[in-house]
Design a protein around this nucleic acid. Sequence first.
DNA 1: CGGCGCCATTGCGCATTGTCAATGTGTGGA
DNA 2: TCCACACATTGACAATGCGCAATGGCGCCG
Lengths: 245, 245
Amino acid sequence: MRAADPLHALGEDPGPVCRCCEADDHSVCASLTPDGLRGLRVIRGNARIGAQDAVFHEGEAAEAVYSLTSGTVKLSKLLGDGRRQIVGFVFPGDFFGFDAEGTYPYTAEAITPVGVCRFSTGRLAQLRSQTPELERLLFERLVADLALAQEQMLLLGRMTAREKVAHFLLTLSRRAVRRNDPASPVALPMSRQDLADYLGLTIETVSRTITQLKRDGLIGLVRPELVDLLDVAALRRVAEGGGSD
Amino acid sequence: MRAADPLHALGEDPGPVCRCCEADDHSVCASLTPDGLRGLRVIRGNARIGAQDAVFHEGEAAEAVYSLTSGTVKLSKLLGDGRRQIVGFVFPGDFFGFDAEGTYPYTAEAITPVGVCRFSTGRLAQLRSQTPELERLLFERLVADLALAQEQMLLLGRMTAREKVAHFLLTLSRRAVRRNDPASPVALPMSRQDLADYLGLTIETVSRTITQLKRDGLIGLVRPELVDLLDVAALRRVAEGGGSD
DNA sequence: CGGCGCCATTGCGCATTGTCAATGTGTGGA
DNA sequence: TCCACACATTGACAATGCGCAATGGCGCCG
């Protein structure tokens, strides 16, 4: 149960206090006016969740929406025979758990220990109707999520293993920068299995591809879960279908 | 330019009048109160677009959001070397063209002749802020689209060719039923190439797989673009990873 | 009425990726 | 300190799906 916790070493250990609605610039809460913020604070609940534990499961009744305050969460869908697809990684400031049909369309599991804010769907719905500003911000967030999902569809359907991995590393780097983390030693809080399930590959192919990129001098492995982007330009060329690179 | 127009024969020929905001139950407009509806009518523009023509292109400034009134539209993303991924098909009543970054994240092209309603982003934004009901409906729609995209990610990343095709046919059938069309002879308004680009396969693999399903008695081809679902239960088993079926 | 052209289908050889299995590596516990 | 376990890496082989090319079918145009 107690898995390696690479993020601990990287200073993303969840602090003792829920930082919901006090997070960085990219958080929905940070864009709210004091009034809207107050509303959110009133209806929110906090929770700390251990690494590898689930926030909710695919198919369960969707009773709450969550906002991540610290750590990393993975969202995954299962096929009957156990095949798994990770449909997204959640970083601090992101919302997850929205749903149209009354049941969660995916399982949400903590990769590292995480802190979340919990908003019961009912109370959030009420607050949303009273706070157009909040509704609007959530909408923007959702549009961005959809664009991200579509980008991932392009990756899953049309990229080679090498392109997938390069693209993924660059995306992680970009997201790190937006959280004011350094662009280059990129942390991979997720396991190789998670990576494979996100990129539509097997764990072995992921491993081999990373080794290949390392051998070609595009990246360096500080540790298995900490990657140096040595040649970003070349990585970018690979990610865009640059063939030989 | 004048391509085959299978939908014409299927009674989905766009009528002489834009039916926007008069569409079926599943349209956003149909759920609006008379007041909200009036607002939408006021700001909308109409357009008819010929088969194979683009509504807008990936990367263009996003100046408007669209609602489809008749026909079928495909949404696609391109890789530098021409590889293409279709990220969604749009049917009457659906909205498309939302964006977070100021530019469209995909290209929208008419598969058949289509009719659309056009809402300039500016005016729609204003109306949305005045009509919480509308904002809420668009939000629900977006959540559903996101769930659909995630389902497609599972398909693209983890399903075999056979499973992909079976899943696709069943999905089309379900969507047809929701539009009050028959479940079984399912119309495929899109070309084999579009199908391949949607399922992350090549045109040849799609063709071979369809032939295989036909040989196994699960489907029948009335015409290449009209498929009989002969054994829905078996198809369902295949789509869920039923292995041998 | 015949030919041309587009799209779908089929055949065949090949490559990328998956599968199965063994070997390394690093961390925590005895 | 050593062992055990989990995870990552590497290797050998198989298979699914791809690429290229030829054939077939159908509608449009001359």
